[in-house]
Amino acid sequence: MEDKYLNITDTDGNILEYEIILAFFWSKTNKYYIVYTDNTYENDKINLFASIYYPNDNTKLEKIKTQEEWNEIESRLGELYE
């Protein structure tokens, strides 16, 4: 399978490329979540980022707001390497 990338263009015109690890819709919050990485490491751990995104709005990438949402993301990530 080809890699799936998330490209973010910032206000300075830089294009930042992230590899998508996981994306899912959670019916409990009615929101779309995306987990992605820039493939950088910190203390031997790969950096993963998580955000809320909107399928039909390419200008919004929101922060995760609640611990319950973080827990759900952790749980879905866990399933990937269970």
């Binding site: 799936k4 990338y5 998330l6 490209n7 973010i8 263009t9 910032d10 206000t11 300075d12 930042l16 998508i20 996981l22 994306a23 899912f24 819709f25 779309y32 995306i34 987990v35 990485t37 910190e42 203390n43 751990k45 790969i46 950096n47 993963l48 980022f49 998580a50 955000s51 995104y53 399928p55 039909n56 390419n58 200008t59 919004k60 990438l61 922060k63 995760i64 973080w70 993301i73 952790e74 879905r76 990530l77």
Partner: peptide, 26 residues
Amino acid sequence: YQLKPYNNKKVKVINIPPELKKEFNA
């Protein structure tokens, strides 16, 4: 891995793969 919030405040445009633009479960 370490899971963290994305803190870039300068996001202007996001390009995502076409399949993420549709409704899906996973």
